[in-house]
């Protein structure tokens, strides 16, 4: 198999783009903070509240995810094959065995969470277990563990903090514009309006940057996961299977869907239109598959 060393050959282009995005995010929010302070808007208090929320989310991510996704932790006895796959991969990453969970859902999906390798959790849906071979499932979990190994949750938490902060401020300024407040009733209407508009722009630009950063982390995890498994083709196959055209053919029964639709305004089939929304923070699958195939070629025949 492949090397178990942690010194992976990083993709230099990807790394520079990732750092550039992070710098742009930093500059954006630094300028924004200075701007708000200049306007005399006390943002420290809001910053502390949102910061506390973000820290809580960061430290509780595994528990929160378990709660919100309906994932159930499973023992080695309940899921021996899944445990074995994850144990093998965790050993290769030199990380302790993460918690293992299963979500009872036909939608093929998997994710990992946890602020560091000591607090990691890997969850897979029953749908993905059914649709993928062991080799492919192992590649998908390898990709997910790469997020943990690369400390992506930390990067994401930082990004989320800023997006949360701006969205919080936007709401605050909006209500202030309508009803005045913050100790200087009516006086600061114009200032609030400017602050609101600027926050709105920062919110959208910030979100775009965070999303592109997330996409870079995806490529990074594809890369790391492939180095660990030594089999980039397996992840490419898995991606093709769970996100390709055929994967859109549903698991649901027509009769149940029709019965449910009798009580719904929006058709269930419209709501469940494929799994595209799962990948909205992800780069296009075709692009990921292409890069994985290139990596597979390089691994097999060496760099040209």
């Amino acid at each position: 198999m492949s090397s178990t060393s942690k010194s992976f050959k990083r993709d230099p282009k990807l790394l520079s783009r990732m750092y550039l995005t992070m710098i742009m995010l930093g500059v954006l929010y630094a300028v924004f903070t200075l701007f708000l302070l200049r306007l005399g808007i006390p943002i420290t208090f809001v910053g502390i509240i949102v910061g506390a929320m973000a820290i809580f989310q960061y430290y509780m991510s595994d528990k929160l995810v378990l709660k919100s996704s309906g994932a159930k932790e499973v023992s080695e006895k309940q899921e021996p094959k899944l445990h074995e796959i994850i144990k093998t991969l965790a050993d290769r990453y030199n990380m302790p065995m993460p918690k293992v969970a299963v979500i009872d859902s036909a939608v093929p999906n998997a994710f990992a969470t946890g602020r560091n390798p000591d607090n990691a959790l890997v969850a897979v849906t029953t749908g993905i277990q059914k649709r993928l071979s062991t080799r492919e499932l192992s590649a998908v979990i390898g990709h997910e563990l790469a997020h943990v190994a690369n400390r992506d949750i930390r990067v994401l938490a930082m990004g989320n903090f800023f997006v949360m902060l701006t969205s919080f401020l936007m709401t605050m300024f909006f209500w202030n514009m309508l009803f005045g407040g913050m100790g200087r009733r009516r006086e600061g209407g114009g200032v609030m309006m400017i602050a609101y508009l600027v926050t709105m722009v920062v919110y959208f630009v910030g979100q775009m940057l965070v999303l592109s950063l997330t996409r870079y982390r995806e490529y990074g995890a594809d890369h790391t996961g492939s180095e660990i498994s030594g089999d980039p083709g397996a992840l490419a196959d898995a991606l093709g299977k769970i996100s390709g055209t055929i994967a859109q053919i549903p698991d649901q029964d027509l009769r149940k869907m029709q019965t449910a639709n009798a009580f719904l305004i929006i058709s269930a089939s419209l709501k469940n239109s494929g799994s595209a929304n799962l990948f909205s923070t992800h780069p296009p699958v075709e692009e990921r598959i292409k890069k994985l195939r290139e990596l597979e070629h390089r691994m097999k025949y060496g760099a040209r």
Binding site: I246, I249, P250, D253, L254, S269
Partner: peptide
Amino acid sequence: RDRASEAVLANDMRKSGLNIETALTEWMGL
């Protein structure tokens, strides 16, 4: 369900003139 076989069959059925559901997400099973 055997999705790969369904895709092959649908292609042949479409070629023979049958109106095949274009949204794959609507191919609910029975």
